[in-house]
């Protein structure tokens, strides 16, 4: 089953600063600042200008991140947070 697809602005990570393993993102579309811990920035990078469902997201970032074994549940939780913050949406 494919599930919902998500999309982030192509330039969502264009204004960002790394500090102590965290990514501070200035989101240009909203003017809001978000402090993100992994894997949220990697999820954003995977969806920037390129929509995908959970499976596609996992395959795009899977090589870099050890999300297993709770991967699907953890990913769904991160996506819900990113969607509430307006950083990703369903196209």
């Amino acid at each position: 089953m494919a599930g919902p697809r998500y999309l982030a602005d192509a330039d969502v990570l264009a204004v960002a600063a790394e500090m102590e393993g965290l990514t501070i993102v200035f989101h240009q579309a909203s003017g809001q600042t978000h402090i993100l811990a992994p894997p949220a920035p990697q999820i954003l990078a995977a969806l920037a200008g390129d929509a995908g469902d959970e499976e596609q997201i996992l395959s795009r970032i899977g090589a870099d991140f050890d999300l297993a074994p709770a991967a699907p549940a953890a990913l769904a939780a991160r996506l819900a947070e990113l969607e509430a913050a307006g950083l990703v949406h369903r196209p």
């Binding site: 204004v15 500090m19 102590e20 393993g21 501070i24 200035f26 003017g31 809001q32 600042t33 402090i35």
Partner: peptide
């Protein structure tokens, strides 16, 4: 206090950080 914590604390200590948008960031 590390840079990330400092950033978080100073956004709370600023009354115009949000209004200044990118320049504030």
């Amino acid at each position: 206090v590390g840079a990330a914590e400092l950033f978080m604390r100073l956004t709370q200590a600023s009354t115009n950080y949000v209004a200044l948008a990118r320049t504030g960031f």
